[in-house]
Computed example of a mutant assay.
Amino acid sequence: MAVHKNASPLQMIGLYLWKHKMLYLLSIPGILYFVVFKYVPLAGSAIAFQDYNIFKGFSGSAWIGFKNFDKMFAYMEFVRILENTLLIAAYDLIFAFPAPILMAMLLNELRGMIYKRLVQTVIYMPHFLSWVIISGIAIGLLSQEHGIVNHLRSWIGLDRVYFLGEESYIKSIIVGSGVWRDTGWGTIIYLAAITGINPEQYEAAEIDGASRWRQTISITLPSLLPTITIMFLLQIGHFLDFGFERVFVFLNSLNQSSGDTLDTYIYRVGLLQQQYGYTTAIGLFKSIVGLALLVTGNALSKKATGEGLY
């Protein structure tokens, strides 16, 4: 389509949109999803500054400024739950984030394609199980009377332990179950990045006498660095957003004080006790912290590696 040299900017935009109209039509469902479910709900953040009454709505509820935020840090219960969330999120970042990277590099070393695809399928499968099923499997394995873990402990002469009733174990159970469930799924991105590495680099390294281990350290890992950086930035953006269902299915009256996170606290106080303004303030606090971590991490990443989200 020819464009006149004297066309106005609006005409240029219109011609460009018309030229790529099919691409924009295909993008409409995605755009609508983000508008309806991501941007429109942002208006609800105003509840954080109100003594919100569900019957009076936005316009009828009294504005109370930052009192809900003052309430957050005035209660020791919130401080304890924030500490739990930070610890669980930190453990997840330390142990769960590197797991798919290591798994992808190990799978890349398998030479038998049939065996490689079989292993990939097996480690992908847990991702498609709901957290209710995952918790049922974990409870079955860790049961004090019938769990295989306690049977092994008895076999070697150790006492049986009620793992889900001990506060000291709940964080490890939550993080460990997440590692088992999502490690295989996370390898998809890293395996795709590995397939994009020029094979001539490996051939040249092999001619120079580099071992497989040396090739992994000097070629595979550096080539994965841009992908690792992007995935890391995406994860720290959700640092406090650990997920409700993932934690809630493992909680009981014995381990709640150590396993309770901001998401389960919001459910208990916001929905069950109907403190909508207070819990909206907590959600807004989570979003601000995530945004600050994302912006800071992106700036540091661009300075250190030259890679970033924007």
Score class of each variant (00 low, 15 high):
6 N>K: 12
40 V>R: 02
45 S>M: 15
52 Y>K: 08
53 N>S: 13
54 I>V: 15
54 I>H: 09
55 F>N: 12
58 F>P: 00
65 G>K: 10
66 F>N: 09
71 K>F: 08
81 I>D: 06
90 A>K: 06
94 I>L: 15
97 F>D: 01
100 P>Y: 11
101 I>R: 08
107 L>H: 03
109 E>Y: 01
113 M>G: 00
116 K>I: 00
121 T>M: 11
122 V>T: 08
137 I>H: 03
139 I>S: 14
144 Q>T: 11
147 G>N: 06
149 V>A: 11
149 V>Y: 10
150 N>L: 04
154 S>M: 12
155 W>Q: 07
158 L>Q: 13
162 Y>H: 14
163 F>A: 06
165 G>S: 07
179 V>M: 15
185 W>N: 05
191 L>F: 03
201 Q>D: 06
202 Y>L: 04
205 A>E: 04
208 D>G: 01
208 D>S: 08
214 R>P: 00
216 T>S: 14
217 I>M: 15
220 T>H: 05
226 P>N: 06
232 F>D: 02
239 F>Y: 15
241 D>N: 15
244 F>D: 08
250 F>I: 03
253 S>F: 13
261 T>W: 07
265 Y>E: 05
267 Y>C: 00
273 Q>Y: 14
281 A>K: 02
282 I>R: 04
284 L>K: 04
285 F>G: 01
292 A>S: 13
294 L>R: 01
300 L>F: 13
305 T>E: 11
307 E>F: 15
